[in-house]
Design a binder for these strands. Structure first.
Length: 265
DNA sequence: ATCTATTCCTGGCTGC
DNA sequence: TGCAGCCAGGAATAGA
């Protein structure tokens, strides 16, 4: 599941290879669910720049914007092989091909004139927000810590893996009430988020499920996961049996001993 | 404002 | 080996 580090890896890999080129052709196959609106208007446009916006990828064109969200299993592959889950084929100037693959079709491709309203409403970038502002915003909400980290209007880019990993590293219980978390602990959470995201970016993201970079290569941060996907295994810090619970209807992995900051209502 | 359940979809897993 | 049944999960949405 591509989150901020995976999307960052894709964008950085793609940028030097596609910026400046024109989208000469666009072929959609079984893309009914994945393609939103008039995606065909991206055809003929030149890619001016490429950037990440939370978990979204923004292709800034000479007219309009191509917005890509990879959902759970979306892939953007440069010069990859067309397969049964290929939904869009962008033929680029110079002969390169950019494919959009998506097995579960939770991803979306959209052409818009400007940044959609719903994207403008998303929260700040986790790597840009300052610690004090993070603490203030976190403690001004009244919800569970995990739910807040997953809320893209609070922060854009953190998903299930990095939320669990950051909460573990900060010693915060996923069900801790945001408004009751002591400021020092909220600051530790901010530090943990920044640390875990940066480390994951350095390792090219986490390759579980279908994630690959734009050249098909795998990330390696999955070997650094301390709680995500490790329910039943011993905690790397204290040896306790890691647990998996549901928080905000999301599978949530944590150490019941190391993450005890849960606040009583 | 916050919370839960539901929907989309298919590969991968379990159990027989 | 095959097959039915179940499940995860990002984000939008409905309803409480």
């Amino acid at each position: 599941m591509p989150e901020l580090p995976e999307v960052e890896t894709i964008v950085e890999g793609l940028r030097p290879r596609i910026v400046g080129r024109r989208i000469e052709s666009l072929e959609l196959r079984r893309a009914r669910r994945v393609a939103i609106g008039d995606l065909g208007r991206a055809q003929g446009r030149r890619i001016r720049s490429l950037r990440r916006y939370g978990k979204h990828i923004l292709f800034e064109l000479d007219r309009g914007l191509l917005v890509v969200h990879l959902g759970m299993t979306g892939q953007l592959l440069l010069d990859g092989e067309i397969g049964r889950h290929t939904h869009a084929i962008f033929g680029l100037e110079g002969g390169r091909t950019l494919l959009y693959n998506d097995a579960r079709q939770f991803g979306r491709l959209e052409w818009t004139l400007r940044l959609p309203e719903r994207l403008q409403r998303l929260g700040p970038e986790p790597l840009e927000i300052g610690r004090e502002e993070f603490v203030r915003r976190f403690r001004s909400r009244r919800t569970m810590a995990k739910a807040l980290l997953l809320d893209q209007r609070f922060l854009r880019g953190v998903g299930n893996i990095y939320a669990d990993e950051a909460l573990f590293r900060a010693g915060v219980h996923p069900r801790a009430k945001s408004e009751r978390l002591p400021p020092a602990r909220a600051a530790a959470l901010h530090r943990a988020i920044v640390g875990v995201l940066k480390e994951a970016i350095r390792l090219g993201g986490s390759s579980i499920s279908d994630y690959v970079a734009s050249d098909g290569s795998l990330g390696s941060f999955q070997v650094e996961h301390r709680v995500y996907g490790r329910a039943g295994e011993p905690c790397v810090t204290c040896g306790s049996r890691l647990r998996r619970i549901l928080v905000a209807s999301r599978g949530t992995h944590f150490c019941p001993r190391c993450q005890r900051t849960r606040q009583v209502r």
